[in-house]
Structure formats: structure tokens, C-alpha cells
Design a protein around this nucleic acid. Structure first.
Lengths: 297, 297
DNA sequence: CTGATAACATAAGCTCAGCTTATCCCATGT
DNA sequence: ACATGGGATAAGCTGAGCTTATGTTATCAG
């Protein structure tokens, strides 16, 4: 239904509005950076397409007809509205706010503690974080960038390794002292072990694999506490309820501050890790690139 | 302050609105009667001029960005407003209402009695009459057409003779009977004479000139009543207060109905008269031409 | 009264914006 | 693996929209 067959070239309305406001084709030409004959011909073209006189030519200028007055009123308001919305759009670049998708653990232990630094460096960039306990669904999520744990293979996306998966047992200093340390792997199972349920689809390192990679065989400890949520597991470890698996660099801050002790001699590494993932369909904006550079630093 | 340097070419907004509504450049091209590459390039030009992406290109089409949504809303309302006002202007041609300038006498005695007939013949034409007792000031009056008494010379205007000045004494049948008729000019001055003051700038026939044109010399009657307004003079004649000068065809209706008696043997004609006067600056519209044709009939 | 001035109208010529055709690329569906 | 749809891009053409030049008219000033 809406089509331009019933509209004259709209640029003619811009010229009309200027001439009608200034009541002079010569003045309009000056304002529009063109010439009087151009304005004269364009007004003529507009009047011809409408079949209505918009101006009455008088000595040294023009005056508006009734039809001209009516058209001026609407044209001025429409042009004003359009100018305002175009100005609004230009002032709010799409790249000013970026959305980041990641899992809960990375968001909680790594990103959130460090985000103030990014914000200090980039005051004009607003970060919105989408987190999920389960595997992030990239297809339905329109994030600008994702930081995901895994192998780094996502169809339609480019993934770049950010952090390798380095895992080691961690416990509180209190528990460590209570058991007199853990010189060997076999000593670990004397204490309660904190286990993350891996049935959420996440390919996380677990105790079984850690023992294998350390050249030993995992035998279930008599006391194993299971968690669905890594943050709860970490809290349990901090409060001395058992030994958990710590992922570098998620728990680095706790280890550095002495809240947790890393049993680094049992550290293992896999080919998994956290990756920066962006869509192949969109070149990253300047803001997204700035965020990615900061992640890598 | 308002200038087009801050507006993109507005035709781009027409193309944008179609593509945004249909969410497809190909469909927009069909609607606008052009081709998909043209639409693609125009949208790109618009996005480049704004520095903002308005569409996200997806499989088999496009979706709007936030900025695109904002722009669509305003563009649709502005285009709708403009379409409506342009339609309104086209439907109400300026030529539907015409303004006629004339003097009071012509308006009162000739035009107004006949106007219903014109209206019956032209139901779509609205007449607006501007009258004046003094000489009509054409320069400041923006009438479409004027009917003026005079010689027919007006700078910047085309004048066409409508009615010659034919003047004769008139009186009421009562007065005529009271004086037993007026066989000769000399008999006229036995009765009171009604005189129009000519100091208004109007070049009207007066008693002096009428006597001269009848080969006699005007000697003031003992009883002369003067009037500034011809309608009052006519009323005085009708009510039997004296003999007045009647202008054909202004008083034709009264003579025909017997309200007044024309002393036709003393009728004179000058080179003055009523003229149809139109501006050289404007070709008459169809309505004005219809009115002029009707005047002549 | 004459000449100057301002401003719109018109004519003719030039040029590049806006269109076209052709082709490429990609995602999806069968 | 092939077909299809739809946006992106390149290259070429043309006429809309501009320019310069000139004509016309009304008004003003000397």
C-alpha cells in the first residue's frame, strides 16, 4: 500500500520548505548552497507534479498560497522529526554497548573481579554479560562475543584460545593443616573430595581424569560431596569441607590471597580451555575488538 | 538554521521504509519498481551517511537493528503525514474559490441579484466579493478578477469592456405623475434632482455633463439633494424624492418592474464603463475564466 | 523620465548520481 | 551434491539536476 508513486521526490520538499520559510528563491538557493534557477525549476517541478500553485510570485520575492501554507506546516514538522531521529541515531552508536556471553564460573571468578579495570580503561563502553549454568546456546544468543569453555569448535563462529585448562586440587589451609599435607595422590583420598557433576554437558576435568593424567588410578574416597554449581563447590573448599578441583586462573585470586592452597604438584592440563568466540557473520566493532584485546592481555 | 546539510537525501528514507517494512531488499525493489542492487546500494549509502547499521543481513532477508527500528517508526509517521497533506492539497484546487473586486453599486444592483444564477451553473465555484465605496486599490488587493468602472486603463492589468456607461434620468411613477411628465430637459429642473457626490475619485456621469451631452446647459435646480452613496440615491429616487441618474444596467431591474421610470429620451453614453480587469501576472484559472464568460453573457 | 537594481523565469549545456545488467558469495533446503 | 533465494559488488549507461547565460518585470532613486 505505501509506495512512492504518490510522493514527489522528497528533496523537492526540502527546497520548498526553505523557500517558503524565507519567502525568496534566491535566499533559499543561498541557504541550500545552490542557485536561484535550480530552486525556481525545482519549485516549478513540485507545483507541476501537484497541479497546485504553492507560491504567488510578487515583486522581489514570493508569497505562499493557501495550499503553500498548508504544505509548509506539515513539511516543517516532518523534517524536524526526521532530523531529530537521525541525530539521535548518530549519537548512540550501536558499538557503544556490547554483550558478552559466558558461563557462570568464568563470570563470577574471572570476569567480574576484573571488569572494573576494563571499565576504567574504556569509559565509553558498556558491557552486558549473559551467563548460563548450562552450555551456552550460541544460535539463539545474539551476543557480540562469547567466552566459552570447551574444545573451541563452533560452527559459524571463530574461536580463539584464551586460557588453557589447567586444573589442580585445592583446599583450605585449615584442612591442609588438619591432614598434615598431601605428599602424594593417595593422600588425597583420605580427605573428603568435592566433585562437580559433569552431566550438564560441560566437558570439565574431573577426579578420575586427573588421577589418570597423574599416572594413577582413581579410587572413590569414602567421602565425596557433589555439587551442580562450581561456585558452591569453591565455597565449600574455602570453608574447609574438602578438597576440590581448581581451574586456573579462576581460583588464582583465592590462592594468591591465601584463602585456598593449590596442590600444584598434581596440576594437569588438557586441550580444552576458554575460548573467545565471535560470529563469522559480523566483523567485530571497535568496542568488541577493544574488549577482546583486553581479554588477551 | 534548518538546512539540508544535516539530512541525507530523503529519497533514501523512502527506500529504507519499504525495505524495513518488508524485511527484504528484493521485495522492496519490487514494490518501488526498481532492482535489488539499487536498493542494496541505497541502503548502504544511507548507512554510510549515518555511520550506523540499520539492518542486519540474515539468511534470505534482513532484520532491523535497534537504530533501524527507531528510524522506521519516525520515517513511517512522517511519510504518512506528508502523503496526507499532499493528497489534501491536490483535492482542494486553489481555483475552486475566486475573489472578485468591484464597487458597491455594481455589487448591490447587478452582481448580487444575478449571483444565484452563476452559482446554479457552477456549483463547485465559490465567489468571494470584495467591495469598496472608493476607488478600488488594485495594487493592494489580491482579487482574482475585478469589475471596475472607469476608462479601462490599469497598469499591469488587462481590462476588457463589460458594460458601457449609459445614463438616463429616472424617477418614480408617482413623481412622474405629480409633475405630469418631463417632455423636455428644462422640465427636469422643476423637480428636485438627486446628485451623487463625485469627489470620491470616481469618474461618474453627472447632471452637468448629461445636460451638455444633450446639447443644453445645466442650470442648478432650486432643489438638489446630494448623496455619497449611490444605493441611497437610488432608494431616494424609488421613494419619489426626486429625479436621479440611472446607470444601465444597474437600475434595469427596477425599471423593468416599474418601480422606476427611465426618461430614455435623455439617455447619454460615455466612453467609460465597467471593465473586467485581470492581472497580467497570472493566467486566469478555469474557475476565473468561467466567471468571466458568465459576466459577458 | 531614465537608468539601476533586484528577483523570478526560461533556455541550453554539462555531469555524475542513480539506476541497470551481470556476477559473486553464502546459507539453507532437498 | 545440487538447487535456490537473496544480499553484495562491479561496471557501464543515461537523464535528472544542476550550472551559466539571458530575458522580463516591478520598483526605486536621482
Amino acid at each position: 500500500m505505501l509506495s512512492d508513486s504518490d510522493l514527489p521526490p522528497l528533496q523537492l520538499l526540502v527546497v520548498f520548505e526553505s523557500a517558503a520559510r524565507l519567502l525568496s528563491f534566491t535566499a533559499a538557493a543561498r541557504e541550500l548552497g545552490t542557485t536561484q534557477p535550480a530552486v525556481s525549476q525545482q519549485i516549478q517541478a513540485l507545483e507541476a507534479s501537484l497541479g497546485v500553485a504553492l507560491f504567488e510570485r510578487v515583486y522581489r520575492g514570493v508569497v505562499l498560497t493557501d495550499a503553500g501554507h498548508i504544505l509548509l506546516k506539515t513539511t516543517q514538522s516532518s523534517l524536524r522529526d526526521l532530523r531529530e531521529v537521525l541525530q539521535k541515531i548518530k549519537q548512540k552508536p550501536k558499538s557503544q554497548r556490547i554483550s558478552v556471553a559466558t558461563d557462570f564460573a568464568f563470570a563470577a571468578f574471572w570476569l567480574m573481579p576484573r571488569l572494573p579495570e576494563f571499565r576504567r580503561l574504556h569509559k565509553d563502553i558498556d558491557i552486558r554479560i549473559h551467563t548460563s549454568q548450562s552450555e551456552v546456546d550460541l544460535a539463539s544468543l545474539e551476543a557480540d562475543v562469547a567466552v566459552l569453555f570447551g574444545e573451541g569448535q563452533y560452527q559459524g563462529y571463530v574461536a580463539e584460545k584464551l586460557l588453557p585448562e589447567v586444573v589442580y586440587p585445592v583446599c583450605s589451609p585449615k584442612l591442609y593443616a588438619e591432614f598434615g599435607g598431601f605428599p602424594g595422590l593417595a593422600d588425597l583420598i583420605k580427605a573428603p573430595l568435592l566433585k562437580l557433576n559433569a552431566d550438564m554437558g560441560q566437558k570439565w576435568m574431573d577426579w578420575d581424569l586427573l588421577f589418570q593424567l597423574n599416572g594413577s588410578q582413581w579410587t572413590p574416597s569414602e567421602s565425596v560431596m557433589e555439587f551442580d554449581n562450581y561456585t558452591l563447590l569453591a565455597q565449600a573448599a574455602i570453608s574447609g569441607q574438602g578438597i576440590g578441583l581448581g581451574w586456573s586462573p579462576l581460583l588464582d585470586d583465592f590462592i594468591q590471597s591465601g584463602v585456598l592452597i593449590a596442590l600444584s604438584e598434581f596440576a594437569v592440563q588438557s586441550d580444552h580451555g576458554y575460548h573467545i568466540v565471535v560470529s563469522k557473520k559480523r566483523a567485530p566493532t571497535a568496542s568488541v575488538s577493544a574488549f577482546i584485546d583486553w581479554l588477551k592481555s
